[in-house]
Amino acid sequence: MSEAPVTKDAKAAEGPAPAGDALVVLDKVNKHFGQLHVLQDIDLTIARGEVVVVIGPSGSGKSTLCRTINRLETTDSGSITIDGRPLPQEGRELARLRADVGMVFQSFNLFAHKTVLDNVTLGQVKVRKKDRKTAEATARSLLDRVGVGAQADKYPAQLSGGQQQRVAIARALAMDPKVMLFDEPTSALDPEMINEVLEVMQQLARDGMTMVVVTHEMGFARSAANRVVFMADGRIVEEARPDSFFSNPRSDRAKDFLSKILHH
């Protein structure tokens, strides 16, 4: 296992990650956007069944980190492995691996021209090659599970934001992923809809799904996360258990950040 020097003691002291069952491993990952060094020597290991919350100031590289894990963003150097397999180059192989990595976007990104049911069925049929009947049965039970079963025949534009995001979660789950990535899944939602989405995510965490969640919802981090990763300026500055991170952050950047988001 590889660990960044800055995170070593935090992890050794409190990190829950059981070694040997690493599902997602980032090793010295670097990424530039032109001159901007958005990801700097990122080392991060996520164990099977672990829920990792990534927080940090705007522009610190959280979304980019999330998107490199399923290679929606390419990296400049370093390696990323998922369940022991390094991420392949663009192509069929990569597509297959992406199917194992669910992703939920801030802006939902449901397929606008397809019904809710078809949104959840499409990947199963086209990627997993399931027959339509089986796929629809799976889709309906997933939609029920996230509480939008009654909306199956509507188009995304006819749903509220909270409902759309829950459909997006169902769409990702339909691929039977090994790990789920969430990039600020509640940031585009009206306050009264945030909880319905968080509850689905809580349940998912309880069911043992491996999750990487970029969020500013501290309540979710406290109750569902095994580990909080704090990023600033493209680096992982600190990682710790949620309780100790929130009550006793080590780095000044984290203290500063927490004081800003907790008292506003």
């Binding site: 597509a95 691996l97 990947g123 990627v127 691929m175």
Partner: peptide, 21 residues
Amino acid sequence: MGQAEAARSIGMTFSQTLGQV
């Protein structure tokens, strides 16, 4: 862009992304 990204994220190939979404 998000439409194509969502399609790719569930494992669709380039031609599936283009043709289906």
